[in-house]
Design a protein around this nucleic acid. Structure first.
Lengths: 229, 229
DNA sequence: TCAAAAGTGTTCTTGATACACCCATGC
DNA sequence: GCATGGGTGTATCAAGAACACTTTTGA
């Protein structure tokens, strides 16, 4: 509750942890810094919040500008306010995390003017500022979230196989899951629709393709619905 | 990731949703505004973030100054960045929620210089700025959190009865719970220690007092431990 | 015909739910 | 002795966990 306006102001930025899934491995999008401090090191995409834009909008703008990433699932993570997190001056940063379908975004990110690349989320290179903390918190959040809400589907292409879905959960949660139990459970939720297509992917039986029915999910959710795993 | 420093800066504040439990009813601490805008209306305690202080510290300071509340459980909630949330100028606010043992804090809050009072959290008076949104999000967060983490104990005195604990859960979750099942479950968790005391509270059998064993809880948690309800 | 992933059911165990009566106290 | 909340156990049901073989394809 502001009462007066005479205080010096910390600078305000946003940073984004963008996750993608590459063949069952969780990756994070990083940008190489061209300027000091931390020149040449990798960092999360992000930048200043401008006067007339909301925080969400600032993140969307930065992601589009720096990484060519647009129209993806995004959620606020945490606001980092350590006094010395930027060596130059006081900068408070509102961190977000985003989930993208890597197949759609991998090319645009790496062909952009700045050098943007995907790294394994579990073993990133050394990061600028406190970005390692931010990444760690985003991983924890994703792990927590994925079990209660069907956000994981944002990481997959629109049509996916149950094996892909299972690999996603295994790699995000860091566990291995029983194939039969997994399938039984997710199909029981009744928001996966089997398509008339299969996916041929090598010298073995083709896999049934599914899509996630957002509408059915939200209507189930309204009826008081417990998603788990 | 800041690159340049030439942008105009939004003002940065913190706001706190302080919850207390009063005889089974969840309450929230509000402060009457002495200045425009929203003069005379109720608002969350809060204020500007100063240069050399972290966000957590800013909240602690404001709570102590405005409400005499100190040393309580506190957690960051969300950062609100709507462009017009303050009618005067751009103000971004990092919201926190706090849980206090109302018995210890009710007097100090209301004897402070500013007028601070406890209101039912479910039916607050009209609030200044977007504070109704902040309160609503804090309620949702508390409801979610209380089921997976033993934060509810922060709302109780150190020594409490199982009935008090059950009422806490009932009032936060808005459901009614079966007494036998509730007791069976929470005692099974093995982090409630029965004391050698009872609490006499009227014309009926005295109730066993318990305390929450933080140490035992964290050690259980390390062993991969599932708390629920 | 072989390798490689897709697909499928049943049993067992565990935890959640539903439910009713006696106990200790103050007045 | 009566009103008030404190305290306790069992039976049923649903969901989770464990577990192994057949199917379809490409090479």
């Amino acid at each position: 509750m502001p009462r007066t306006y005479e205080y010096p102001r910390p600078a305000l930025t946003v940073d984004a942890v963008v996750f993608g899934l590459d063949g069952g491995e969780l990756k994070v999008l990083l940008i190489e810094r061209g300027l000091e401090p931390f020149k040449g090191q990798w960092a999360l995409p992000g930048g200043f919040v401008q006067e007339g834009e909301t925080l969400d909008r600032a993140v969307s703008r930065e992601l589009a500008e720096e990484a060519g990433v647009q129209g993806v699932f995004m959620e606020q993570l945490y606001t980092f306010g350590a006094v010395d997190r930027d060596p130059r001056e006081r900068v408070v940063s509102v961190a977000y995390y985003a989930l993208v379908n890597l197949a759609d975004h991998t090319t645009r990110a790496s062909t952009d003017a700045v050098d943007a690349r995907w790294f394994p989320a579990a073993t990133p290179p050394p990061l600028a500022f406190d970005h390692a903390d931010i990444l760690q918190m985003a991983l924890d959040r994703l792990r927590g979230k994925v079990r209660w809400q069907p956000v994981g589907f944002e990481l997959l292409p629109e049509k996916f196989t149950l094996t892909q879905l299972q690999q996603l959960y295994e790699s995000v949660l860091g566990t291995s899951l029983d194939k039969r139990n997994f399938r039984k459970k997710v199909l029981g939720f009744d928001f996966l629709v089997p398509l008339d297509e299969t996916r041929r992917d090598g010298p073995h039986r083709p896999a049934q393709l599914f899509r996630f029915d957002h509408g059915r999910y939200t209507s189930l959710q309204r009826k008081g619905f417990h998603f788990e795993l």
